[in-house]
Design a protein around this nucleic acid. Structure first.
Lengths: 258, 258
DNA sequence: CATCCTTTTGCAATATTTTGCTTTTTTTCA
DNA sequence: TGAAAAAAAGCAAAATATTGCAAAAGGATG
């Protein structure tokens, strides 16, 4: 017989692949009675991982929309490009400055890069993954915006989160967004992240967007701000030269590795 | 017969491959009684390497949770007493309430206890270890006070941290402090934590101090507040009856397991 | 090496938790 | 509406935990 904990893990991973499962199937699979399966599902439901339905259970989907999910799957793929962006971006930072990093995979790469390069920095972020990278370094002054915890993204959001930012004068904000276009400016699917980004931008002297080349000339659902409010976009080497030229014509500055 | 140390190593390496193991399996494998296995697992649990579950134990993996990478385990003093305090304290909570937990090992035990017992709670805290425990339950509404990150305690502090609390109306605040005495009231050594505690108390309808018996009639450097501002102190069974009586004479309510 | 002391171990009695079965109630769908 | 399937509730048996205790093992000391 298996441990309860193991059964729960199996049910979870089963549901991650199948979205829905019958209680009777699980009983066979786990070699326990259907009653035990029901009790297991009850516990998982209490934790908010599954939802019990007549006949079995279904996986609890992200409350965020499906587009967001599709996007975050694409995100992980461009990791080398993001590293390229990050190493270029951190060249703009000077020792001792106060910088802001919003939630996102590109800013995570920036965090990884600065932890090696700088001795002393003040960093304000709403992303707990960034905190976990920078927090180990005792010389860094890390400030976390407070607010509501988003367990999907490991970020914080909300009015309180945005208010706290108004206490600080930030030298550089490094912002990552889902999409950039000349027509719509910065846009995003993450409904809760947008407010944080806007607050960070408004509190920063120098506003930089860090975005790999795949983000250009795409757009997402929620408007953040027009591109003219941004001081600089940092990207990777594979941005087509015609895009680069067009942005340049519109007076949007782009920094990319030559 | 094998040395205790060797058994522990074997259990560890076994768990590294198998993630979970039954106590009865280990008894056969190590050729000792199941009681000895349980005692071994208890020791490994205290070291933070495994988690005991009914029937055996599971490996604690910091890959489960981004934040866990940050935390280095420290030996917790009086953990059994703190668990006793925690299980008594959570009896006072009702489903759906909003509670506050400040930073400290006793509040961590409270967090572990509530995550299993309750389905839906709103919790506000300045402790990242508490966040990482409660994050396991997707139905919990977890709010993190923002502020400066303290890498020694994994907590947040500062003016901003205290201000954010003023946005919320908390049902119950569970507070842990270094020291309690009739003469000095609540006192603490953690200079940055004091402000957070005071803010939490001022925002809460019901103010509860959770403290194991070793804290009584000791005092620390920084004053927090006199005992008369506290509604209830929850403690463990080993508080001497004369202390209990004296507090009772002074109209300080104490709850302890009978 | 015998003695004392501490720690560890296994055992037995007791308590707790988990499980599967039975019965009753609810839900589904024709 | 009514029959079949599923879920909930209650219960007893099995598995697991806990506690206290005595025996065994191991160490230190003279």
């Amino acid at each position: 017989m298996m441990l309860q904990e193991q059964r729960h893990k199996m049910i979870e991973s089963f549901l991650k692949h199948q979205k829905a499962v019958k209680a009777s199937e699980l009983a066979v699979l786990l070699d326990v009675s259907i009653d035990t399966v029901r009790r297991d599902l009850e516990i998982l439901e209490k934790k908010g991982l599954v939802k019990k339905v007549h006949g079995g259970a279904v996986l609890i989907q992200n409350t965020d929309n499906v587009l967001n999910k599709l996007f975050s799957e694409r995100e992980v793929k461009n990791i080398e490009k993001k590293q390229e962006v990050a190493s270029l971006a951190i060249e703009l930072i000077e020792e001792g400055q106060a910088i802001a990093l919003n939630g996102g995979t590109t800013t995570i790469e920036i965090a990884k890069a600065i932890v090696d390069k700088f001795k002393r920095l003040t960093v304000i972020t709403n992303d707990l993954r960034i905190l976990s990278i920078l927090g180990a370094n005792k010389h860094f002054n890390v400030i976390l915006t407070g607010g509501f915890f988003n367990p999907e993204e490991y970020t914080l959001y909300g009015k309180q989160c945005e208010e706290i930012l108004s206490n600080f004068n930030i030298d550089i904000a490094f912002i990552t967004v889902n999409a950039i276009s000349l027509e719509h400016g910065l846009t995003d699917f993450r409904i809760n992240e947008v407010g944080v980004i806007q607050s960070m931008l408004s509190r920063s002297k120098y506003k930089i967007v860090a975005a790999d080349s795949s983000k250009f000339e795409t757009s997402a659902f929620i408007n953040i701000c027009p591109l003219k409010e941004i001081d600089l976009i940092v990207t990777d080497h594979s941005l087509p030269s015609d895009v680069l030229e067009e942005y340049s014509n519109q007076n949007i500055r782009i920094l990319s590795p030559h």
